[in-house]
Computed example of a mutant assay.
Amino acid sequence: MDHDIYEDAFLRDVLTTVKTIAVVGASANRDRPSNRVIGYLVDKGYTVFAVNPGYSGRIINKAMTYASLADIPEPIDMVDVFRAPEHLFGVIEEALDLTPQPKYIWSQLGVRDDKAALFAEEQGLVVVQDRCPAIEMPRLGL
């Protein structure tokens, strides 16, 4: 897939298909983008799980926090990654170990690793890179 341009119909399909989202790299700091996106997604009706090993068992902006993807007690449709690009491959590997596996990996603004994305796609995951659902949803009228 070309990760430079995403068709609006593709993004709309991803964002309307997904019901459960794990936000990896969640911050308890309300000034951080991950914190604001968690609250936005919860307010839009998604079931959101925050992932932050140092904050496990507590709430981050209306979402329960878990130490890892494997600790989340229900299937995840999409993993939204707020980690530096060099960590994307590891997050993908962790997602691939889940049963069932999520369908989507979404990496936030500034988070892009084309080799990791290709690996994920070869394993059957759909990847969106360097985008924010909290920006795309209003732009798409969702």
Results as ranks from 00 to 15, higher is better:
V128M: 14
E94Q: 08
A9F: 02
E86I: 09
D130M: 10
V42N: 08
D97L: 10
N52H: 12
A134Y: 11
T20E: 06
V79M: 03
V111H: 02
V37Q: 14
Q108R: 03
V126N: 02
T65H: 03
P53T: 13
L109D: 09
Q129I: 07
R139F: 07
D130I: 11
D31L: 14
P138D: 12
Y55S: 15
G25S: 06
S27R: 04
V126K: 10
E122G: 14
G57N: 06
M1P: 09
Y66F: 14
F89I: 07
D77R: 15
G25K: 07
E74R: 13
I21S: 01
V79L: 01
F49K: 13
V48H: 02
R58L: 13
K19W: 00
K19C: 01
A67S: 15
A67F: 00
K44H: 10
P102I: 05
S56P: 06
Q108K: 07
E136M: 12
A28C: 04
L109H: 08
A22W: 00
A117M: 09
R83D: 12
L15K: 03
G124Q: 09
V111L: 08
V91Y: 00
A26W: 07
C132R: 07
L142S: 10
T47N: 02
K19E: 02
S107W: 06
I72D: 03
M1W: 11
Y55T: 14
P33Q: 03
I76K: 01
P53K: 03
V51H: 00
M1Q: 12
P133N: 10
Y6F: 11
V127Q: 00
Y46T: 03
V37D: 13
I76E: 01
P53L: 13
I105Y: 03
I92D: 04
L69H: 03
K44C: 05
N61V: 04
F89H: 15
I135S: 10
T65L: 05
A26H: 08
L140A: 08
I5S: 13
A116L: 02
V128P: 03
T20P: 00
G124R: 02
A22L: 03
S68L: 02
T65E: 08
L140S: 01
T47Q: 10
I60P: 05
L140N: 00
R32I: 06
G25W: 07
D8C: 08
A117G: 10
L140M: 03
L118K: 15
K62T: 11
I38L: 04
S107R: 00
D77W: 14
M137W: 09
D114T: 15
L125C: 08
E93H: 08
D77C: 14
N61I: 03
V51A: 05
D130S: 13
I92K: 00
F89A: 12
R131A: 12
A116T: 06
L15W: 14
E7M: 11
L98C: 01
V42Q: 05
L98F: 07
W106D: 01
I60Y: 01
A28N: 08
V48L: 06
I59S: 13
I76S: 00
K62N: 13
E93P: 04
Y6D: 01
D113V: 07
G110R: 05
D130W: 05
L96K: 08
P75C: 01
N29Q: 10
T47K: 14
I92G: 01
A134N: 15
G45Y: 09
R30I: 12
W106M: 00
D114P: 04
